Simulated assay, not measured.
Amino acid sequence: MANVGLLVPLVAKPEKSSAVADFLNTGYSLVPEEPLTLQWFAVSYESSSPPTYAIFDTFAADEGRDAHLNGKIAAALMQNAPELLGVGPQIGKVNVLASVVRPVKDGGKTAGVGCGLRVLIQAKPEKAGAVRDFLKNAVPLVEEEPETPYWYAIEFPGTNTFAIVDFFPDDNGRTAHVQGKVAAALFGSVDELLTGTPEIIKTQVLAARV
């Protein structure tokens, strides 16, 4: 079970966008050398300027995360960052509060998903515990969504910031999720629990291993 993870946005230099995508495809080929990496996703943010990509990956414990951070993918990222990125990699360590993982049979290079969402949630300080509970309790609702094979609720420890990262076969599945019970409950709780409306970024999946 995934208990910890990393969410690493990569802001590309405008002229290096395709090179960053190529780098992530190289990273995909190295994931099998990391037996403690449970799930690994490389995405691009839709309609972002400057062009932005991200890696989201999960681990059972800090041991796996530390091994990844000391492994070939991270080393290659740090080596190539000055050439490819407009700003240095922002390595966000996260705790995985809850997840739904339903691997798609014969999913190919993208593990059967083509698009996703990254939803950033800022809790009121006194409501962080309630947001944490809300996300944990959302699992049964996500399990009712057949077109949501991968869903993660995460927390940035030491802050009041949470996020949902999820992936869908296509835009129909993503739209169904946005119009579903979890999203309705989350947006219905904004005034009570959050400092503002969650920030939603649509993503395209470049490569994934699960």
Rank of each mutant, 00 (worst) to 15 (best):
S47F: 04
I55Q: 11
E63H: 09
W40V: 01
A60P: 00
D66F: 04
L77D: 13
D66G: 12
N70S: 13
A76M: 14
D62M: 06
D62N: 11
N70M: 05
S49V: 11
Q79K: 15
G64C: 03
F59C: 02
P51T: 13
T58H: 01
D57I: 03
S49N: 12
M78L: 14
A75L: 09
L38G: 08
G71C: 05
Y45S: 02
V43P: 04
F59H: 09
A54Q: 06
A42C: 02
R65K: 14
S44N: 09
I73E: 15
L77K: 12
I73K: 14
Y45N: 05
S48H: 09
D66N: 13
A61S: 09
E63D: 11
L36P: 03
L36N: 12
F59T: 03
A67R: 00
G64N: 05
L69S: 09
Y53N: 07
F41I: 06
L77I: 12
S49C: 10
A76W: 11
S47A: 09
A42K: 01
L38Q: 10
Q79W: 08
Q79R: 15
N70K: 15
A42I: 00
A42H: 04
G71A: 07
Q79P: 03
F41T: 08
E63I: 06
V43G: 10
P50L: 03
A42Y: 02
K72S: 15
I73V: 07
I73R: 14
G71R: 03
D66M: 11
D62A: 07
I73G: 10
L77E: 15
E46R: 00
A54S: 12
M78V: 04
S44Y: 07
D66I: 15
T52M: 01
R65C: 02
Q39G: 10
S48V: 05
D66P: 05
Q39A: 10
A74E: 10
L69C: 08
A60I: 07
L69D: 13
G71T: 06
G64T: 07
N70T: 11
F59P: 00
D62R: 08
L69Q: 12
A61K: 14
T37M: 10
K72Y: 10
K72V: 02
P51G: 07
A54W: 10
T58P: 03
A76E: 12
G64Y: 04
H68Y: 13
S44M: 01
G64L: 04
A74P: 01
A74H: 13
D62W: 03
L36I: 00
P50R: 14
L77W: 11
P35C: 05
H68R: 09
M78P: 08
F59G: 00
D57W: 02
